[in-house]
């Protein structure tokens, strides 16, 4: 099982994820239509680029937009989870060692163990908060469907299994295998589920940034981050 998961399954999951993201990214931008969307994308490339970058950048900054500031607790939980969800898979030392072995390279830097531990705890607690929020707030509950629970489950599983392995609760090799399996499930799910937001976030924000930058006020000098 372990050999399968760290061998062919890993390459397949990673390949599907990366190729899937590229294809969907291409499809997204290819499907934009100046007349249907009513945005002259190609006529104002500079304003469009500026709008897109501003829209992405500001929303990536904690409390960088009016929207984040309007919901400070949600923003804290959101960033608490997402910072860990991005940094840990990419820069955890164990992951980098694994990458080096499998692909012959590792990524930029390694997180120190205390930092990684902190990020993990913060991410898990934040995700539990988001889960609780889904249960408690009527305005979130009304929209929550089985898919949303599925995504939460898929997203939290690698964290939980990773922690159990890290703290060696019970059978280490079992949790490690479970961790790799759940991680690969995430990779496979990214192009085909709502998890596609990990890359389509940039596409969608870029589009709205272009929309406002080119057409809805950008040319009038509005400095708003849409």
């Amino acid at each position: 099982m372990y050999t399968l998961l760290t061998g062919p399954a890993f390459y397949i999951a990673l390949g599907v994820c990366i190729i899937g993201m590229i294809v969907r990214f291409y499809q997204y931008f290819n499907g934009l239509s100046w007349q249907l969307d009513r945005v002259a994308y190609k006529e104002y490339p500079a304003m469009g680029f500026k709008g897109a970058v501003r829209s992405i950048y500001k929303w990536l900054i904690p409390y960088g937009t009016y929207g984040w500031r309007a919901q400070p607790v949600m923003a804290a939980a959101f960033f608490g989870f997402h910072v860990g969800a991005i940094l840990l898979p990419l820069f955890l030392i164990g992951h980098n060692v694994f990458l080096k072995e499998k692909l012959g390279f590792s990524l930029f830097f390694n997180l120190s163990t205390p930092v990684a531990d902190w990020l993990t705890w913060i991410a898990v607690i934040s995700l539990l908060f988001l889960l609780l929020r889904r249960l408690v707030l009527p305005e979130v509950r009304i929209m929550t469907d089985r898919k949303d629970w599925g995504i939460l489950l898929i997203s939290i599983a690698p964290f939980i299994t990773g922690m159990l392995a890290r703290y060696q609760v019970g059978d280490y090799s079992f949790w490690l295998t479970a961790h790799i399996l759940t991680g690969e499930i995430v990779l496979l799910a990214i192009p085909f589920t709502k998890l596609s937001h990990v890359f389509l976030f940039f596409a969608s924000r870029a589009q709205l940034g272009m929309d406002f930058g080119i057409k809805r006020g950008g040319l009038k000098g509005s400095k708003m981050a849409w």
């Binding site: 499907g31 309007a70 949600m74 305005e139 979130v140 929209m143 389509l200 596409a203 969608s204």
Partner: peptide, 23 residues
């Protein structure tokens, strides 16, 4: 013919987070 990637992506990636409620 008319509902292309912009709207379809919006409908797909909506996280049902409810942050739009108060707006």
């Amino acid at each position: 013919n008319t509902c292309k990637t912009r709207i379809r992506t919006w409908l797909e990636i909506c996280a049902h987070c409810g942050m739009c409620a108060d707006s």
